Amino acid sequence: MHPENELKLKTILSDLLERKADELKATSLLKEDLGVDSTEMVELCGALEKAFGIQIDDAVEKRLKTVGDLYSLLSAKA
């Protein structure tokens, strides 16, 4: 992932989840480690779609388990 996109992703995550960027590791589990609930997941995907100009369908959204999964998704689509 391009460093600029990684920074943009971390900024979105830290703003939405009210976490420091250094807490967001690639292995961090979205639900278990970061406390992302279903509403926040929808908000997160919407923010990523807007920021990166991509579409994230429901099937893909359900497979996103870690911050690393988000990196992979954005690397493939952005």
Rank of each mutant, 00 (worst) to 15 (best):
residue 64 L to C: 04
residue 36 V to D: 09
residue 44 L to F: 09
residue 65 K to Q: 12
residue 75 S to W: 05
residue 54 I to M: 13
residue 74 L to F: 07
residue 17 L to I: 08
residue 61 E to P: 00
residue 36 V to S: 11
residue 1 M to G: 15
residue 78 A to I: 13
residue 76 A to L: 13
residue 77 K to I: 02
residue 21 A to E: 07
residue 54 I to L: 11
residue 34 L to H: 06
residue 4 E to F: 14
residue 43 E to W: 06
residue 19 R to W: 00
residue 33 D to F: 07
residue 21 A to K: 01
residue 13 L to H: 03
residue 30 L to V: 11
residue 73 L to G: 06
residue 35 G to A: 09
residue 42 V to G: 04
residue 3 P to Y: 06
residue 14 S to N: 05
residue 23 E to V: 01
residue 56 I to Q: 02
residue 50 K to M: 13
residue 60 V to A: 15
residue 69 D to F: 03
residue 7 L to E: 14
residue 45 C to I: 12
residue 28 S to G: 09
residue 39 T to C: 09
residue 58 D to K: 03
residue 58 D to Y: 01
residue 6 E to A: 15
residue 52 F to T: 03
residue 24 L to Q: 01
residue 54 I to Q: 12
residue 74 L to Q: 05
residue 50 K to P: 11
residue 35 G to N: 08
residue 77 K to P: 11
residue 40 E to G: 06
residue 27 T to S: 13
residue 50 K to E: 15
residue 10 K to M: 10
residue 14 S to Q: 01
residue 26 A to F: 08
residue 57 D to T: 04
residue 25 K to D: 10
residue 33 D to S: 12
residue 37 D to T: 04
residue 35 G to T: 11
residue 63 R to S: 15
residue 52 F to W: 05
residue 16 L to Y: 02
residue 1 M to C: 14
residue 49 E to T: 09
residue 14 S to Y: 00
residue 18 E to N: 13
residue 43 E to L: 12
residue 21 A to W: 00
residue 61 E to V: 05
residue 57 D to W: 06
residue 27 T to K: 09
residue 45 C to A: 10
residue 44 L to P: 03
residue 32 E to W: 10
residue 37 D to Y: 06
residue 40 E to C: 04
residue 25 K to T: 02
residue 8 K to G: 06
residue 32 E to Q: 15
residue 31 K to N: 14
residue 68 G to E: 07
residue 66 T to I: 08
residue 55 Q to E: 15
residue 38 S to D: 02
residue 66 T to P: 12
residue 27 T to M: 08
residue 78 A to M: 13
residue 54 I to Y: 06
residue 36 V to T: 10
residue 14 S to K: 00
residue 23 E to A: 04
residue 25 K to N: 10
residue 16 L to I: 09
residue 1 M to K: 14
residue 72 S to W: 03
residue 19 R to E: 03
residue 4 E to V: 14
residue 70 L to A: 09
residue 37 D to Q: 02
residue 75 S to L: 13
residue 25 K to P: 01
residue 25 K to L: 11
residue 41 M to P: 02
residue 78 A to N: 14
residue 77 K to Q: 12
residue 72 S to G: 12
residue 68 G to I: 02
residue 45 C to S: 03
residue 44 L to N: 04
residue 72 S to E: 11
residue 33 D to A: 13
residue 23 E to D: 10
residue 15 D to Y: 01
residue 6 E to D: 15
residue 48 L to T: 06
residue 37 D to K: 04
residue 34 L to N: 06
residue 36 V to F: 04
residue 14 S to T: 05
residue 13 L to V: 07
residue 34 L to Y: 05
residue 51 A to S: 13
residue 37 D to L: 07
residue 19 R to A: 03
residue 51 A to C: 07
residue 69 D to N: 09
residue 46 G to Y: 02
residue 6 E to P: 08
residue 30 L to K: 05
residue 21 A to G: 01
residue 57 D to A: 10
residue 54 I to R: 09
residue 41 M to S: 04
residue 40 E to D: 10
residue 53 G to L: 06
residue 53 G to F: 01
residue 27 T to R: 01
residue 31 K to W: 10
residue 45 C to M: 10
residue 49 E to G: 06
residue 70 L to N: 10
residue 61 E to D: 07
residue 10 K to P: 14
residue 43 E to H: 13
residue 34 L to A: 10
residue 5 N to S: 12
residue 57 D to S: 05
residue 19 R to S: 01
